[in-house]
Lab assay of single mutants.
Amino acid sequence: KDKDLLKGLDQEQANEVIAVLQMHNIEANKIDSGKLGYSITVAEPDFTAAVYWIK
């Protein structure tokens, strides 16, 4: 199951987060929520590491 990592990002921010996570071998998903911006989700086992790397 995926957990929400970040919400309300613009496309550039979302792409930067995806890139950082991929560099650390964390699979992440970018979801277009329309006017609400983009959300990033990661698998539950990767959540703690993902939070660490996006600081």
Rank of each mutant, 00 (worst) to 15 (best):
Ile26Trp: 02
Leu9Met: 04
Ile31Glu: 04
Gly34Val: 04
Leu9Asn: 01
Gln22Ala: 14
Tyr38Thr: 02
Met23Arg: 12
Ser39Phe: 10
Glu44Trp: 11
Glu44Asp: 08
Met23Phe: 10
Val17Pro: 00
Ile31Ser: 04
Asn29Trp: 13
Glu16Phe: 15
Gly34Met: 03
Asp32Leu: 11
Pro45Lys: 15
Thr41His: 06
Gln13His: 08
Ala14Ser: 03
Asp2Met: 15
Ala19Cys: 12
Glu12Val: 09
Asn25Gln: 07
Asp32Tyr: 14
Lys30Arg: 08
Ala43Ser: 10
Gln22Met: 12
Gly8Arg: 04
Ile40Val: 09
Asp32Ser: 09
Thr48His: 12
Glu44Lys: 06
Tyr38Glu: 00
Asn25Trp: 06
Leu5Lys: 01
Ile31His: 09
Leu21Asn: 01
Glu27Lys: 15
Leu6Glu: 02
Lys35Phe: 10
Ala43Asp: 05
Asp2Gln: 15
Gln11Met: 13
Pro45Ala: 15
Gln13Pro: 03
Ser33Val: 11
Asp10Cys: 13
Tyr38Ile: 09
Ile26Asp: 00
Tyr52Lys: 07
Leu6Ile: 11
Asn15Tyr: 07
Leu9Arg: 02
Gly8Trp: 07
Phe47Glu: 02
Asn25Asp: 08
Asn25Gly: 15
Trp53Asp: 00
His24Thr: 02
Ile54Asn: 00
Ala49Ser: 08
Thr48Arg: 12
Ser39Asn: 09
Val51Gly: 04
Gln11Val: 11
Gly37Met: 07
Tyr52Val: 05
Glu27Val: 14
Asn15His: 06
Lys3Ser: 05
Ala50Met: 03
Ala14Pro: 00
Ile31Met: 05
Lys30Leu: 15
Leu5Met: 04
Gln11Asp: 12
Gln11Ile: 13
Asp32Ala: 09
Leu9Glu: 02
His24Cys: 10
Val17Gly: 01
Asp10Asn: 13
Ile54Asp: 01
Leu9Ile: 07
Ile18Lys: 02
Ala19Tyr: 11
Asp32Lys: 10
Met23Leu: 12
Asp10Gln: 06
Ile40Thr: 00
Leu5His: 01
Ser33Tyr: 15
Met23Gln: 09
Asp2Gly: 11
Leu5Tyr: 03
Glu12Ile: 09
Gly37Cys: 09
Val51Asp: 06
Asp4Ile: 15
Asp46Asn: 07
Val51Arg: 08
His24Pro: 00
His24Lys: 04
Val20His: 13
Ala50Asp: 01
His24Val: 05
Val17Gln: 01
Thr41Leu: 08
Ala19Arg: 15
Ile54Leu: 12
Lys3Met: 12
Gln11Ser: 12
Val20Ile: 14
Phe47His: 05
Lys55Gly: 11
Lys35Ile: 13
Ser33Phe: 15
Thr48Phe: 13
Tyr38Val: 05
Lys1Leu: 10
Val42Met: 02
Asp4Met: 15
Leu5Phe: 06
Val51His: 07
Lys7Phe: 12
Gln11Thr: 08
Pro45Phe: 13
Val51Lys: 09
Val42Asp: 01
Val42Tyr: 02
Ser33Trp: 15
Leu36Arg: 09
Phe47Arg: 03
Val42Pro: 00
Gln11Ala: 13
Asp10Gly: 08
Asp32Pro: 08
Tyr38Ser: 01
Leu9His: 01
Asp4Arg: 13
Lys30Glu: 03
Thr48Val: 12
Leu5Ser: 02
Gly37Phe: 06
Gly8Lys: 03
Thr48Gly: 10
Lys3Gln: 07
Ile54His: 02
Lys3Ile: 13
Val17Glu: 00
Val20Lys: 07
Asp10Pro: 06
Asn29Val: 11
Ile54Met: 06
Val42Ile: 06
Leu6Tyr: 06
Leu6Gly: 02
Lys55Phe: 14
Ala28Leu: 04
Ser33Pro: 02
Glu12His: 11
Lys35Asn: 11
Ala50Thr: 03
Glu12Asp: 12
Lys35Thr: 12
Lys1Glu: 08
Gly34Asp: 04
Asp32Glu: 07
Thr41Ala: 05
Lys30Ile: 15
Pro45Asp: 14
